[in-house]
């Protein structure tokens, strides 16, 4: 039993969970507003899209490296099908298929340059991101566009509603939350119960060993980026339906906070490490910071400062831990035989 507890204590995710709890309690003590159902529902709603994006970031960082293209792939694809929906009246599921196809194509472009030429994934995905940006704003003018009728049902779908009270406004949990839950379940199953999923971690752990063991590394890596494209599109669609409009500008820059979230959750930028729990916890923590600062009386202007500090602290702690474990490892190696 103690081994399991020891292992649990070594996990990053535990500490993030503790921090969340402590923060939540502190905020509630200060304002009395945190544990209200309205706030909790609001928080859950606010993490939906970023959690889906976090999946993209997780898959990329664990196996290969940075992926910063998911918000713009999401934005561009959603924008395109909204426009199509308005002008052509195609049914919703066809539009969704088109969007997924666009996302897949973007993923293929990422995958191609990263796998075939072994270019740095940060730079490739940055390039793809700007290409999507250019298309969304340049070709299509990037003007905000309302949700077309085909998606109205989905856009209005709430699975939970909390009434307005004296202390707080009403809140509702959008149906997209279920989409997120399903996606997480799917990804969980694949990552933990299929060989392809284990390959994601194996490739990130030691690519050479993965090849030798027989994993089709290049194919799997390419597939990861295509999947990221699909996931991004789903995230983008959910976001637009939740907002009941699509404004590409709102997607811009969305990758930063997601990456910060997953790093907080234990994903290592060097690869091979990271969990779904960590993604959710990290996303939730940052959402809390964004959402709850005002509750404690801190002006909303300070939001970015806080996020920046959290990223810096989180990354520093992770870096110091990594350095320390390397030192311990070399001592273990030396002491190993004697």
């Amino acid at each position: 039993m103690s081994k399991k507890i020891k292992r649990l204590l070594g996990k990053n995710e535990l500490y993030v969970a503790i921090i969340i709890l402590v923060l939540a309690i502190t905020i509630h003590m200060q304002s009395g507003l945190f544990f209200l159902p309205n706030n909790l529902v609001d928080l859950l709603r606010s993490i939906i899209v970023n959690s889906i994006y976090a999946l993209c970031a997780l898959l990329a960082f664990v196996s290969t490296g940075a992926d910063v293209s998911f918000p713009m792939i999401a934005g561009m694809s959603t924008y395109i099908i909204f426009k199509l929906g308005e002008t052509t009246g195609l049914p919703a599921f066809v539009l969704v298929l088109i969007a997924l196809a666009i996302g897949a194509v973007c993923g293929c472009i990422n995958g191609f340059f990263i796998v075939k030429f072994r270019f740095n994934s940060l730079i490739v995905t940055l390039s793809t991101s700007t290409i999507c940006y250019g298309i969304a704003f340049g070709a299509l003018k990037g003007v905000r566009i309302d949700v077309p009728a085909q998606f109205a049902d989905f856009a209005n779908w709430n699975i939970l509603k909390v009434a307005k009270t004296e202390k707080a406004l009403g809140a509702s949990l959008h149906g997209a939350f279920l989409v997120m839950v399903i996606l997480y379940l799917l990804v969980y199953l694949v990552l933990n119960h299929t060989m392809v999923g284990r390959a994601v971690y194996a490739i990130g752990g030691d690519e050479v060993s993965a090849r030798r063991a027989g994993f089709k590394v290049d194919q799997i890596r390419f597939g990861i980026f295509v999947v990221n494209g699909l996931l991004a599109v789903i995230g983008g669609l959910c976001y637009a339906c939740m907002c009941k409009n699509c404004s590409p500008m709102e997607y811009y820059g969305g990758e930063m906070i997601v990456i910060a979230a997953i790093v907080l959750g234990g994903v290592r930028l060097t690869g091979g490490h990271g969990s779904l729990t960590g993604c959710i916890l990290g996303t939730f923590l940052l959402a809390m910071v964004q959402n709850s600062l005002t509750m404690v009386g801190i002006s909303v202007y300070y939001q970015n400062v806080f996020i920046g500090i959290i990223i810096i602290l989180g990354a520093s702690v992770a870096a110091i831990q990594a350095t320390r474990s390397m030192k311990i490892k070399s001592v273990v190696d030396k002491e190993g035989g004697e």
């Binding site: 930063m256 910060a260 930028l269 970015n304 810096i312 990354a315």
Partner: peptide, 19 residues
Amino acid sequence: VKVPPMLATLGTYELFYGI
């Protein structure tokens, strides 16, 4: 501290932006 540069400058960019 040996934070990977991408992450370090991402954090500082938020910080500077915020300030």
